[in-house]
Amino acid sequence: MATIEFQGKTCEVDEEGYLTNLDDWTPEIGEFIAKKENMTLTEAHWEVINFLREYYDEYQIAPMIRVLTKAVGKKLGEEKGNNKYLYELFPEGPAKQACKYAGLPKPTGCV
């Protein structure tokens, strides 16, 4: 099992660098993982990441994109409630990339 070192702590990650244990996540480690991929997280990124975490807390799964875009639209205004806005923030796809920084697992199955 691969690991990453952060602030003296060793955390397990999977083959693609997703944290294996939800409890290992802190905003700082999210920032750290993003930095390794040459991403700087702005407030706009954090709005999405925080929503993902809240949704996960309630439903134990990351939300589908449509729920995410709707929520972002409601909270931050219609013009931001679309895939385009989210892909600008997370070019590799909000589901994949934002979940990684939020410390959430990748979805599996027919998706």
Binding site: E58, Y59, Q60, I61, P107, T108, G109, C110, V111
Partner: peptide, 8 residues
């Protein structure tokens, strides 16, 4: 397969 719980 996705692991969706009833409320999700």
């Amino acid at each position: 397969h996705l692991g969706l719980k009833p409320h999700a």
